[in-house]
Write a protein that binds this DNA or RNA. Structure first.
Lengths: 342, 342
DNA sequence: CGAAAGCGCTCAGCTAGATTG
DNA sequence: GCAATCTAGCTGAGCGCTTTC
């Protein structure tokens, strides 16, 4: 008679069924080096294990070994943009290839929940911790000092730590170069953020993006028709700025937008004036959100490489090379149809 | 002399430091009912635990208790739309309020990886499993029979199981009602999917959405100016269908779009003809993706309630009420500015 | 290749002393 | 004065696994 509860198969069951000791079975199933077990026994144990449907108990393994083969990912917000999703994908891919699983938590945009989330992860004894910041405006991360190996993604902190960031220090230069190569002679920049640059720590990405842009613009052989400063980066903002620019008589051959959402607004304003990106003028943007490919024509954009960033964070954690410092990842230019070839 | 490795504080340490037994400390820290320990002792133990920075070892607890307080979430794809993110958010919120953490995995769109992912979760002994399907076209889920309590979100399977779905059986009716109430006399439906309805199991949502639409349309006092069947649901498809419709001379007072991406294309085509949604005619859509609020004017849409779906899945799992069957969640109408008031 | 010792924790069961009838 | 009952806590076994010896 079987017991009522289909008890889970344990190492001991396999050992008994195969006439071996638990130790031997353990060694075989983990193919430990240094063990000299007969091929015949190895074969037999493997067979029995499979037949019985043996599955090691992770809790027991962790308890014994002190390693959980688990990574923790805490996001300030699993937002609505593609960014969180791609970061998760990158993390999952990298973690899987190293045979780790990932625990996920979110602070729901409330910084004070960070400590709680980290405590949860510590309780779970994750082997490493990834802190992802979607809303990169956040400041004063208040990262509790656990002993956990930690890497920040898309965020920086005052305390020395390992961080992975997009290479915004080059992104503006890349944009300008692309515009120059397209043959445009004049350019307008739409979307500089009014408050953003007051505190570089608050908006590191934004500050760097525009810093790079401005430096490159001043060196390039381009007539700069002005910067339009916005309060926010939504389509409406881009729409209004563009409408105003057009009404003031400016006719730039190229427009560089702060991001794709403002570019969407730019497209709308342009359309109302009968202007078509890619044909009448060039539009280039940053981020490469999903809407970039929805626009007509499709928008060329300099991509935020979140998936790569997530993957790198995992590699850093599992490679053990955690000296404090920044790792910058190239932002690739995604060429689509919004640039006019002159 | 302290040992070199700052050994982690265990229950035994707290017990010793407070002059109690491990059992007593365990009871106190877990405030077990039925135990009658002096208030004084309770106080003292709590104090010592905090002072020492005691943190229970989750692996040991799991091993002993057989419960991991962990839920597994496997997604077929952590896509680029808002859906996966919202589902995760819902799951995280619900799980947190019940003091569970969540392990996440993805099949990267490869159905054959589902078995592997589930095995991972089983190995980790999750207390429950949530299978999320973003790409609801998937068929033949091939869910390995683990003994794990499982709920499907946005997917159905041949085997009897608990599933959470959006209430698409009413979504079409809701749309038609809203159009009728707006005072429109004629309507066009853009975006019926050619292949979708051949197999209701393959696209349950789509099939139901259009089933509901068609039933309601036939009962409503509306002139139906035709259904435009599309191959896919991207902006380009909506754009082309609308352009063609307009060129054939149709002038519906309202357009119902299969989803927001299609609606985006519809907006583009309308704009080219000088037609403004909300002023010249009504446009209503489904899903309420992020782009719905980016469009000009903002798009009214019947929302896919992914966050609620995720949360319900958790509740179901943790409540233990897992009879096979479907739980349908209302799809709320998000009113914005694309409906013309007649 | 086996025996045995735990990893840190929880749970059922026990006990020593204080209070009652 | 003594058995019965409480009070307040302790003991020990063992979860399933890995790792000396």
């Amino acid at each position: 008679m079987e017991s009522h509860k289909a008890k889970r198969v344990t190492l001991a069951d396999v050992a008994e069924a195969s006439g071996m000791s638990k130790a031997a079975v353990s060694m075989i199933l983990n193919n430990k080096p240094g063990s000299r077990l007969s091929a015949e026994a190895t074969e037999r144990v493997r067979g029995v294990a499979k037949e019985l449907g043996y599955r090691p108990n992770a809790a027991a393994q962790s308890l014994r070994s002190g390693k959980t083969r688990t990574l923790g990912f805490i996001s300030d917000q699993v937002t609505v943009t593609r960014f969180a999703s791609e970061m998760i994908t990158g993390i999952l891919r990298a973690a899987e290839s190293r045979e780790h699983t990932v625990l996920i938590a979110e602070t729901f945009g409330k910084p004070e929940q960070m400590a709680e989330a980290i405590k949860q992860m510590a309780h779970r004894d994750v082997d490493g911790l990834i802190l992802g910041f979607m809303d990169s405006r956040q400041r004063d991360l208040k990262i509790p000092q656990t002993g956990l190996p930690t890497v920040l993604v898309n965020g920086i902190d005052d305390s020395p730590c390992t961080a992975v960031l997009p290479n915004e220090n080059e992104s503006g230069a890349k944009a300008v170069r692309h515009v120059v190569e397209s043959g445009a002679r004049s350019v307008a920049v739409i979307g500089e953020l009014g408050s953003a640059e007051k505190d570089p720590r608050t908006y590191p990405s934004i500050t760097r993006r525009f810093g790079s842009l401005r430096r490159s613009l001043s060196e390039a052989n381009l007539e700069v028709l002005g910067h339009w400063v916005l309060d926010d980066w939504n389509p409406t903002d881009g729409y209004q700025a563009t409408t105003q620019m057009l009404s003031e008589g400016y006719k730039p051959e190229a427009i560089i937008c702060a991001n794709d959402r403002v570019a969407m607004g730019v497209f709308q304003a342009l359309a109302e004036e009968g202007l078509t990106p890619g044909a009448d003028l060039s539009v280039l943007s940053f981020d490469d959100e999903i809407i970039a490919s929805y626009l007509r024509p499709q928008l060329s954009s300099i991509r935020l490489p979140y998936e790569e960033m997530g993957a790198l964070a995992v590699d850093l954690l599992l490679e053990g090379s955690l000296e404090p410092g920044e790792h910058q990842i190239d932002m690739p230019l995604i060429e689509r149809d919004s640039m006019k070839r002159n």
